[in-house]
Design a protein around this nucleic acid. Sequence first.
DNA 1: TTTGGACCGTAAAACGATTTTGGTCGAAAA
DNA 2: TTTTCGACCAAAATCGTTTTACGGTCCAAA
Lengths: 202, 202
Amino acid sequence: MVENMITGKDDIIRDEILQEAQKLFQQYGVKKTTMEDIAKAMGKGKSTLYYYYCSKEDIFDAVILKEMGEVFNSVKQAVEKATSAEDKLKAFSLTKIKLVQKRINLCKVVKGEMQDTMHCIKHLHAEYINQEVSLVKNILAFGVQNGEFHKSVGRELDMLPEVMVSSLRGLEQDLFVNARLAKLEPRLDTIMGILIRGLKNK
Amino acid sequence: MVENMITGKDDIIRDEILQEAQKLFQQYGVKKTTMEDIAKAMGKGKSTLYYYYCSKEDIFDAVILKEMGEVFNSVKQAVEKATSAEDKLKAFSLTKIKLVQKRINLCKVVKGEMQDTMHCIKHLHAEYINQEVSLVKNILAFGVQNGEFHKSVGRELDMLPEVMVSSLRGLEQDLFVNARLAKLEPRLDTIMGILIRGLKNK
DNA sequence: TTTGGACCGTAAAACGATTTTGGTCGAAAA
DNA sequence: TTTTCGACCAAAATCGTTTTACGGTCCAAA
């Protein structure tokens, strides 16, 4: 969606559909939530939903993209507030995990659940990774530019961001999937510390 | 199992059960393989299996532990052949991935599948991670000892090995779960290069 | 001690009937 | 013309019952 600001009345209704859908998906799960449920939650008829969205899956897709937008916007802000590339990387990782965890729908997508029921999961996954890689790439470029990272890092910006994202995902899996929430920050600190020393200019 | 060498006749039969079970699990999956199938594959009656093993799950457990033993024995040998800690880490990772991939049963366990059907999956998972962490810990200790890694690494040997294992798991997930087999070595080289530079003595 | 086929009990599968739900239609209301 | 809605359709899901499959046990034979 090109526009972020809600303008016309139809955008108001589109967003209200997403808000109600998000709540119901979060509370009952996607499967247990019917189009009738969503419509009734906003005091409208079921057909109204189909005037604004193509299908139930289309609504789900929009809900996840909205949650993703919220998360990555906040992550971007946290990254911008940090001054060193090192702190930016830490802000990126910590903020992302914390915000994703609060969004049960997005969290399920990130974990790889629901792949049988929602075809859009694949592209949502791809979009999520794309945003991650893009952010990490910017941070690494920033680190090279301000002399914090070795200039050889600049030559590896094709592969390095996604390798780092994959690597961090391993730690995140321990938290999301295996519910090991303890030691989140020390573990991230540990691997970040080594990665950053490995990237630094010396 | 304390003994590795097959000694008595009963060990011969126990191993034959595992070999046949392994083949059938690999070809048809655990669910589709019956105890009758395993018994018939070795020309014996079903009750015979229960003389040597407690249950179907007991057999499955033994098959996976056997495959795990094979993998980690070979990984240990590859690690021992390498002379520097750096090469040892690379050997550890590459050899492990290649060997696990060849064992469809173990591969499924590592991927986290079958958790509904086999209760022993949790402890098998724990055993697998334990072996990984143990190997990485030895390599890190070796690197500190020969001056290749900073001595501060020596103080972090409680958490660092498991954090590194989690981190590498992220790359492995891309390969195992998302079937991205291309770029395996360059991606490992990339993250290993940075990790090692971050660990090195300077 | 080892082996094996008959047997048991429970889970899974199959089946047909019924209900639910995603999505569409056409008319009414705004 | 745009937005809305309830009736309707077709297919999927659910339910209850029956049948089958299979893990595991038993007991006698080798």
